[in-house]
Amino acid sequence: MTTKQIAQKLVDYCREGEFEKAQKELYSKDVVSIEAEASAGFDKETKGLDKIIEKGHKFQSMVEEAHGVKVSEPLISGNSIAFVLDMDMKMKGRNREKMSELCVYHVQDGKIVSEQFYM
């Protein structure tokens, strides 16, 4: 699969809220995830597909209400993909808020090998 094909599939899955499905299909088993900062019990860096899926489950357990997800069109440069992810949600014990982050992915041998988030 080309980087462009991976980018489109990733964006489509994210728009549908199918983050784990995207990870299982598009990520390398040795993928690395880097957060904007370590917070709310999340490490700055997570290594391995199983650990990243576990991190996703932890995040979902913290969501009280999801009101929408918006994903921009992807930008592609060589083996890199970037898009903006906007989420409107209420986390447990907090007020409803809108979160926006720039998501950057690197592809190698037809799989995503790293993801990094900027807020």
Rank of each mutant, 00 (worst) to 15 (best):
E97V: 02
M91Y: 12
K44P: 00
V69F: 02
F83G: 00
K21F: 08
H67G: 14
I6C: 09
R15L: 04
E64R: 04
L85Y: 00
E18T: 07
G17R: 11
M99V: 03
I52P: 00
M87H: 04
Q8G: 05
S61D: 13
L49N: 08
S33A: 13
L75H: 05
I6R: 06
E73N: 08
Q60M: 15
S61C: 04
E18H: 14
V11M: 05
G41N: 07
K70M: 02
F42L: 03
N79E: 12
T46P: 00
E64P: 02
V69I: 13
V32G: 01
K70A: 07
V71S: 03
K9R: 15
D86T: 03
S72L: 03
E64W: 10
G48C: 07
I76D: 05
M87Y: 01
D50T: 08
D43Q: 08
S100G: 02
R15S: 08
G93W: 10
D50L: 07
K44H: 03
A22S: 15
S61F: 03
V11S: 02
S100H: 00
L75V: 06
E65F: 12
V11Q: 05
Q23M: 14
S80V: 06
Q5C: 06
G93E: 12
C14P: 00
G17P: 10
I81Q: 01
S100V: 03
M89A: 15
I6N: 02
I34A: 04
L102S: 01
R96E: 15
F59R: 03
L26Q: 05
E97L: 06
D12C: 12
R96G: 13
M89W: 08
E54D: 13
C14H: 10
N95Y: 11
S80H: 10
E16F: 05
A7F: 01
G41V: 08
E18P: 02
A66M: 14
G17K: 12
F19R: 02
E25W: 11
S61E: 12
E35Q: 09
M89R: 12
A38L: 06
P74W: 01
F83Y: 12
K58P: 10
K29H: 14
A40L: 01
L102I: 06
E37M: 11
A7H: 04
E101Q: 05
L85C: 02
P74K: 04
G93L: 13
G93A: 14
V32C: 01
E64V: 07
Q60W: 15
K51Y: 08
H67A: 09
Y27M: 15
S28C: 10
M89V: 13
A7N: 03
P74A: 11
A7P: 04
F19P: 08
K24L: 14
A40Q: 06
I81C: 08
V71I: 14
R94H: 15
G68T: 07
E73G: 04
K24D: 13
F42S: 01
F42Q: 05
M89Q: 14
